[in-house]
Design a protein around this nucleic acid. Structure first.
Lengths: 184, 184
DNA sequence: GTTAAAATGTACTGATCGGTTTATGTATTC
DNA sequence: GAATACATAAACCGATCAGTACATTTTAAC
């Protein structure tokens, strides 16, 4: 399987898992919808879990790229970037097909303590914190790590409420709290 | 089936669904673990979804009772109650068997727009907001509804991070933000 | 003690689960 | 054109899915 084909398989599987959930999406459906035979899929991924992990790797890359770039586009200073992250999130919430955070959902479905999927989901969140911390540091904020962790709490809360309520207002609420947080 | 037996069935099913997830918990396992025959279960619940909805109703009642009572025990004033909610949450995060919020997980697994399970999950969150709003109002806070919604964002964010990280520190982070929020 | 309701275990339905086997087809490479 | 590598469709594996049928046993009311 070429790199392109493999990437396309993962990309299409991502859409399926994101839309329907992990347990609820069978490998037969994945084969059917991606156009890649099940035999071939299992030739490149030993288990469904391995495919899911590959999907989460792609999602991590895509999402961080999108978010960080959108933050840069929206703001001029690091501090503004952190604030306007919530504007970017609001845009996301308003997108057709928004169904919450894929990592939260993955963690919700695979919650055993030592589960690789859960671990990878949390790794994504830590990468976000790292970036927030770097920006907070650049902004001259006193305790960058603490602020970064708090911004993560705000972001995750906003996403969960947006997904459950089918509304984007939680983005504004979180942003308003973040303003308070950054004004200290 | 007596009311007691029915309540016990729901109670035990709650434990299973909370621990293993909804899709991952089959009705055969529910029958086996609750000691109630599948025939009998389906005599009282038309579908698995109906059982899940009953479980969520119980969880809603239990969780709100526990949280609101714990908040009252910890604090003397409405404002303090809202703040010390995060201490109560921290206690919850540290409990053995803590696996995140059942409603977030339900919403993550049943995310179709018109899904009854998703709707019931969000209804639980709205009941929480109502209570927060009442307390905020009693505390003489300027915009009680806005503050209540923001506290919900903080609470959900803290829960999600606690579940993913297997750590309770997000409770303190959220509390520290809440202090800022309530000090305005 | 009889009757009727409600519970049970067991077996079954057709579908789907994750994953494998097999036999066939189709490129590329030499 | 033979060989190699990789793809395919389709059938298959045993297990499990949600839900049902059925014949039997328990429970409770009279």
């Amino acid at each position: 399987m070429s790199q392109n084909k493999r990437a396309e398989l993962i990309r299409k599987a991502l859409v399926l898992f994101y839309r329907n959930g992990f347990h609820a999406t069978g490998m037969d459906l994945v084969a059917k919808e991606t156009g890649v035979s099940k035999t071939s899929i299992y030739n490149h991924f030993r288990t469904k879990e391995e495919l899911i992990l590959a999907v989460l790797r792609l999602r991590d890359e895509n999402f961080r790229n999108w978010l960080f770039r959108r933050m840069e586009d929206l703001a001029d200073t690091p501090k503004e970037q952190l604030l306007l992250m919530f504007d970017a999130l609001e845009e996301w919430f308003l997108e057709d097909g928004f169904k919450g955070c894929m990592f939260i959902k993955a963690s919700a479905e695979f919650q055993e303590h030592d589960d690789a999927i859960n671990a990878q989901a949390y790794a994504h969140k830590r990468l976000l914190v790292d970036h927030f911390e770097m920006l907070a540091s650049q902004a001259g904020i006193e305790d960058p790590h603490a602020v970064a962790r708090k911004l993560l709490v705000l972001k995750e809360g906003a996403i969960v409420i947006a997904a459950m309520s089918h509304s984007a207002t939680s983005a504004r609420e979180a942003k308003s709290i973040a303003e308070l947080l950054m004004a200290e």
